[in-house]
């Protein structure tokens, strides 16, 4: 099994890009395009959370993976995009979705995150990093950011999907 620090940034980038693309192409017939990554801000002045932010109400899905490689992936999207995706998945109109409430959207976003992280980690499994998925959880709110623990390596990728933006925030830690 290769060591985690031997896996290059480009492998992580390609792996998450393929995962997001596969999920959105298969489930929604929407292409997902990785937006050019801005230069990471200098540590002493930079604010990495700025690269995550999406305006307005946010829905964030998170699923972890545990094993030879452990980590968490957060998928950030606007509440509007979350509703749009949920309606498509469930075959529900915006009115039906409103009536059904946030729980239904949360569950759909949880499943989208589960599929995306699953596709990501399955590629890592095939490269020798055996790991298993955790159960999805959801955060909702606005103007919040998630600060990782210091031992985790953080990588942030932004994707353009139709007129919406999806942010994948990868936090990786070497397994025990």
């Amino acid at each position: 099994m290769p060591a985690i620090d031997q896996v290059t940034d480009s492998v992580f980038r390609d792996t998450i890009t393929r995962a997001v693309h596969d999920v959105f192409k298969t489930m929604f017939s929407l292409p997902a395009v990785l937006i050019d990554q801005p230069e990471p801000p200098a540590p002493e002045t930079g604010d990495p959370e700025q690269r995550v932010l999406i305006d307005g109400q946010l829905v964030v899905g998170t699923v972890g993976f545990i094993g030879d490689i452990s980590g968490l992936i957060y998928l950030y999207m606007s509440a509007g995009f979350a509703n749009h995706l949920s309606g498509h998945l469930l075959g529900m109109s915006p009115e039906e979705l409103d009536e059904a409430g946030d729980e239904v959207v949360n569950d759909a976003v949880g499943e989208i995150t589960n599929m995306t992280v699953g596709t990501f980690k399955n590629q890592l499994c095939d490269q020798g990093f055996s790991c298993k998925l955790t159960i999805p959880s959801i955060l909702r709110g606005s103007n919040f950011s998630i600060a990782p623990i210091t031992s985790a390596t953080r990588r942030i990728y932004r994707f353009q999907i139709a007129e919406h933006v999806l942010v994948a925030d990868l936090l990786m830690k070497q397994g025990d």
Binding site: N114, M115, V117, G118, T119, K121, N122, L124, C125, D126, S130, K132, L133
Partner: peptide, 22 residues
């Protein structure tokens, strides 16, 4: 969503007719 060759093989051995990865 739990795929990966080793996982699939391990589960398939218990006895499944087919395997669809999300």
């Amino acid at each position: 969503a739990e795929g990966g060759r080793d996982n699939v093989l391990k589960i398939a051995k218990i006895g499944v007719r087919d395997y669809i990865v999300k």
